[in-house]
Design a protein around this nucleic acid. Structure first.
Lengths: 123, 123
DNA sequence: AGGTTGCATCAACGAACGTCAATACAAGCC
DNA sequence: GGCTTGTATTGACGTTCGTTGATGCAACCT
């Protein structure tokens, strides 16, 4: 149930050149675009925020579905896209399925977007 | 030529709660999704990176168009979307048009994505 | 076993997106 | 003025996306 993430954002600390460091090559741009595209929908952003802001870090699908005026398959579909983008993961526990934010995923994206400071530029 | 940006990301420092601070409301999610959607295309990511990484901060369209195997209208269209998302702006100088990254736009997005540290959580 | 509940997948639809050729506009040059 | 070059806009096309009802599967409960 949790085997198709992208692992796209890079896992180390110094591995991610950053948007403003050098022009992106096509391959890396394609990978990153897939992640940003997953964030490019209001429903998915709200789902992600709902999970990320939750005390404990986990949210049951049974809580997310009624929070939107959308059908249950639609919510399930959006959660799948977020998972394929490598942003969240899930686990079934008895009857219910719980989702959480993959640690580091959002922070790596943030680092990628951050414009280098003057100090870093001279490094 | 530069009047239709979104000004969506918020302009202050303490104004942006952040993804993980509290569940996003629908309105703010819609605004932010528009920005992330602009980043959700490989061509636009490369254009943005090309501009952001350029010494001097400005790039002429005449340099961007031949960098892709795409028609000139397509590049123009992508630049328009980035501009409407509030990420870049442009100015005509004689025959040529120059684009630059709007200062702070990317950093505000990065701040929005960053997961609060343990210290910040207790604040 | 049969029934019920929670969630995922399928198939189909309209809407939005990425792309291009054609065209329009703006500025420089003859 | 007309011609040429750089960029934006228009209109059209195929593809992808967001959504749904119907269906399938997994786990609990009698």
């Amino acid at each position: 149930m949790s085997k198709q993430e992208l692992e796209v954002i890079g896992q180390g600390a110094a591995c991610c050149p950053g948007l403003a460091a050098a022009p992106l090559d096509g391959e890396r741009a394609t990978e990153l675009a897939r992640v940003f595209k997953a964030l490019g929908d209001p429903v998915r952003l709200r789902l992600l925020s709902m999970i990320a802001s939750r005390e404990g870090g986990e949210v049951c699908v049974c809580e997310m579905t009624p929070a939107f005026e959308l059908s249950q398959p639609t919510i399930s579909h959006h959660l799948k896209l977020l998972r394929q983008a490598g942003l969240i993961d899930c686990e079934r526990r008895g009857t219910w399925v719980y989702y959480w934010v993959l640690p580091g995923a959002l922070d790596r994206l943030a680092v990628f977007l951050r414009t280098p400071t003057a100090a870093e530029t001279h490094a």
